[in-house]
């Protein structure tokens, strides 16, 4: 009986997280268009619903009913599997994220490691998509993406090592609690170097501007998903936005204190402690997502070799230095 209840709770949790994330993805696209529109002296979507609020649903319906085309020379099984890999890897990553205190689908002790592993699996989907499409643009996009994701994976992993050292745990909930105990309340302050590396690597990991080379529309048409249409295209899109949300959530959990706010703030303004944790968490995630949009509206795109140079020559040494400093500080201070 206990087993059934536990199972039911897990299923309910999964359903809640799944629904919430899908809803957020839908409106992340809406707000991206609205916010960038505002930055670019235009309105963004206005037609469907008041202020275009129903636009995401219109888009979804459109993508759902579009013809599903596979190129004649495509490698069919791989072509069909690729988007599924991207979405599954993005969605699985959600299972270890604590959204607020004690709300997490799988509270495992290697949460952070699991997250890194699962998110990097999406590169298989991208490479396979690029290969299976049998198109040169897709192929180049897939190659770029593979190189980019692998090199930035290292910088990102190293930037998180500092956090692991400070928290003494790989469990994301424990990391948040460790930040709550910390006098500064957020690891973003003592780990500013790691935070910087993480933010840059997160942009590259999710293929977002200024590192959106794999899907650089001006060069490679649409990169690895050039040949995809309809629902499979939507899958890649979904995967990208879920990955963005995941990265924002990781930034919030590992560097910005997750669902807690620094102790000195609650001491100064006691009423803040009555605000539920999920609100703080969401505020931080939204702020990070806004940062994604802001950067996209501002910066030009890097070239492939420049991107590699930054990854290997700037970010990796910085992350290494950060790890060393943190380790020394932890040992002797």
């Amino acid at each position: 009986m206990d087993f059934v209840i536990t199972l039911a709770i897990i299923v309910i949790k999964i359903a809640v997280v799944f629904g919430a994330v899908l809803f957020h993805v839908a409106y992340a696209t809406y707000f991206e268009r609205k916010i960038i529109g505002r930055m670019q002296a235009r309105y963004g979507p206005m037609e469907v619903g008041p202020h275009g609020l129903l636009q995401p649903f219109a888009d979804m319906i459109k993508l759902f009913f579009k013809e599903d085309i596979a190129p004649a020379s495509a490698d069919r099984p791989l072509f069909y599997i690729a988007p599924a890999i991207v979405v599954i890897s993005a969605m699985t990553a959600l299972s270890v994220l604590p959204f607020f205190d004690r709300f997490v689908i799988a509270d495992i002790d290697i949460g952070l490691l699991f997250l890194l592993v699962i998110t990097s699996l999406s590169v298989y989907g991208i490479v396979i998509a690029g290969w299976a499409s049998n198109s040169k643009y897709s192929f180049l996009g897939g190659l770029r993406s593979a190189a980019q994701l692998i090199s930035y994976e290292i910088a990102m992993g190293l930037s998180l090592v500092g956090v692991m050292l400070m928290a003494g745990s790989l469990n994301l909930s424990d990391i948040v609690r460790a930040q709550h105990q910390h006098p500064l309340g957020m690891f973003a302050f003592p780990q500013f170097l790691g935070f910087f590396v993480f933010v840059v690597a997160a942009f590259a990991e999710t293929n977002r501007a200024p590192f959106d080379l794999p899907e650089a529309e001006s060069e490679l048409v649409a990169g690895y998903f050039t040949e995809y249409s309809g629902f499979r295209f939507a899958f890649f899109f979904l995967g990208e936005y879920v990955a963005m949300l995941t990265m924002s959530a990781v930034a919030a959990l590992c560097f910005l204190g997750g669902w807690t706010i620094p102790m000195f703030m609650t001491n100064a303004m006691p009423f803040l402690s009555y605000v539920p944790g999920i609100i703080w968490f969401l505020v931080k995630v939204y702020a990070f997502m806004f940062f994604y949009y802001w950067i996209r509206a501002t910066l030009p795109r890097y070239r492939y070799d420049q991107l590699m140079a930054i990854g290997w020559k700037v970010l990796m040494p910085l992350a290494f230095v950060n790890v060393l400093i943190t380790a020394f500080a932890k040992r002797w201070l």
């Binding site: 960038i36 002296a41 235009r42 650089a216 030009p300």
Partner: peptide, 16 residues
């Protein structure tokens, strides 16, 4: 030119 290099906002400012 800016859009090709990836700077999207210049595009819309210019069209204004």
């Amino acid at each position: 030119h800016a859009l090709d290099i990836g700077a999207m906002t210049v595009f819309l400012y210019s069209f204004r």
